[in-house]
């Protein structure tokens, strides 16, 4: 089977605009702090971008009901599928 998703640009948390939601997909486990996963950043959970800090970094997110902030470089590692 040919994987078509490779040619399309994979969306990450960084692709969200304020107010938008997504479902968390894959990420490289060893690069994401365990603390973030314990706060609910796990495949299948919902993430919403609440607000961007000035200079567009860090990102204020609601993940699985938890309000937290992470940096753009971390957000870039977490794949999502946008929910419309």
């Amino acid at each position: 089977m040919i994987d078509l998703t490779i040619s399309t640009i994979q969306e990450t948390i960084n692709s969200l605009r304020p107010g938008e939601k997504g479902i968390i997909g894959n990420f490289a486990v060893e690069k994401i702090p365990l603390k973030l996963q314990e706060m609910g950043c796990l495949p299948g959970n919902e993430v919403q971008l609440i607000q961007l800090a000035p200079f567009r970094d860090p990102l204020f997110l609601n993940i699985n009901g938890n309000n937290l902030a992470i940096r753009r470089e971390t957000a870039d590692l977490i794949e999502i599928t946008k929910v419309l």
Binding site: P33, L36, M39, P58, N66, N67, A69, R71, T74
Partner: peptide, 11 residues
């Protein structure tokens, strides 16, 4: 190490 910046934004 990598950045591990995670801040809870409490109510």
């Amino acid at each position: 190490a990598h950045t591990t910046f995670v801040v809870e934004m409490p109510a």
